[in-house]
Nucleic acid binder design. Structure first.
Lengths: 229, 229
DNA sequence: ATTATCTATAGATCTATAGATAATGC
DNA sequence: ATTATCTATAGATCTATAGATAATGC
């Protein structure tokens, strides 16, 4: 039921609303960074508003409480990412490649947005990890692969557990040591550890867990990565 | 330089010291439970003293601050468990069985002491997971297995990542659904998921990741579990 | 005129300490 | 007499709100 008149001006979003949205989004970003670092309980509301450069009282125009902004973060960070992944693999038909793409994109995003990654690691388990966003995607994709006999495995729950845990831990490793490989702790460095190419290595490892052979797993993990069309 | 006289009484620990130790240990246990649930930042010192049934001021006889008791928890919970595992596998020679025993005992302890398990899951990544307790044990044991050609793998870092992540995630699953399998979320139940025998299934999965065949992995995961000698 | 943000503040909560009380060991 | 715990409390911090200010849209 749109106006019959051709919209003369493209009816840009009222400025007030945009202003409000931007404040809200600044609060969310600041909260993500702080809560990823210190956990929900370790962050005070005034820290958030200061980091967001927003008046203290404005917080309550957007969120009822600390718990409320935390819940909003979970939605924002996880659901939205699940949808992004779904879009990315829309045209990928091989279940193994679907998994590989999801794993690699997760690690790449964690590298680009460390706070997001840290939040994912911190909340990935507790927040019913298997039921939302990334976890749900993995579960469904693994299931598809099992049904089509692509993954010859027999313990679906343990496979989801292993794949999910491997990805989260890989994110954690990437965040701790990825940005400055020089700072690998001595115990790890001495063993010749390197975090080079972690996304691909994680994808290959996960595919092996799902029953693929070494050579095929590595080949799939190296395929060109589809980006957001 | 002990007294030359044969100790008539076996010199029991002075009562005052024992009293002090007990208070300290009640504080630690209360803190473990509360911080496992809500994270360090979400717990107030008076909550801890109340849960421990200890006068508020006594807290400061034992710990300087919340950060201090938290650090003590990390030591207590992780280092000590690493030592327990070391004792358990002292007489086990097969690296694969060593891993299996460690994994199963970790899951069994999480079942017996849910707060410990929840704390492990919450802090397992951040607290330099690969450098202490459980993580360090796994790393060393995997390394041994690689050197002795027991584990035909080529990416040691990813194997540690995968094994560690699988164990932590399995603990998380056990805690969420283990005690009351009736409460599995619909999405999981419908798929025929069950958490029966999770310790053995986790051990088998981990051994497969390390390159063992399905049959052998399952056989090792079912061997009799050594207990504390 | 309306709407969003900002400043100021009352009241609640939390931390850290000082001094009192109770228990132990001589 | 010594040592550990407990009670009480000052001061700091945090939350939630009320009322003032600034910006938008008519």
């Amino acid at each position: 039921m749109k106006s019959p008149l051709p919209a003369a001006a493209p009816q840009p979003e009222p400025r007030g609303e945009r202003r409000k949205r931007e404040t809200r989004s600044r609060l969310l970003e600041a909260a993500l960074r702080l809560m990823a670092e210190k956990g929900m309980g370790g962050v005070a509301i005034n820290e958030i508003t200061q980091a967001a450069d927003v008046g203290f009282g404005s917080f309550y125009n957007h969120f009822e409480s600390k718990e409320a902004i935390y819940a909003a973060l979970l939605d924002w960070g996880f659901e939205e990412f699940g949808e992004t992944l779904a879009r990315l693999v829309r045209d990928v038909t091989d279940p193994a490649e679907v998994i590989s793409v999801c794993v690699r994109h997760t690690l790449l995003r964690a590298r680009r947005e460390p706070s997001w990654g840290q939040f994912l690691v911190r909340e990935g388990f507790s927040a019913k990890g298997l039921e939302r966003g990334l976890g749900l995607r993995l579960l469904q994709d693994i299931e598809t692969g099992v049904k089509t006999k692509r993954f010859p495995i027999d313990d679906l729950l343990m496979m989801c557990t292993s794949v999910g845990g491997t990805v989260l831990t890989a994110v954690s490793i990437e965040l701790q040591f990825g940005s400055s490989p020089g700072t690998l702790p001595a115990g790890l460095k001495r063993r010749g550890f390197s975090v080079e190419g972690l996304p691909e290595r994680a994808a290959a490892t996960v595919l092996r867990t799902l029953g693929l052979g070494q050579a095929e797993a590595e080949a799939i993990a190296r395929r060109r990565l589809p980006d957001l069309s």
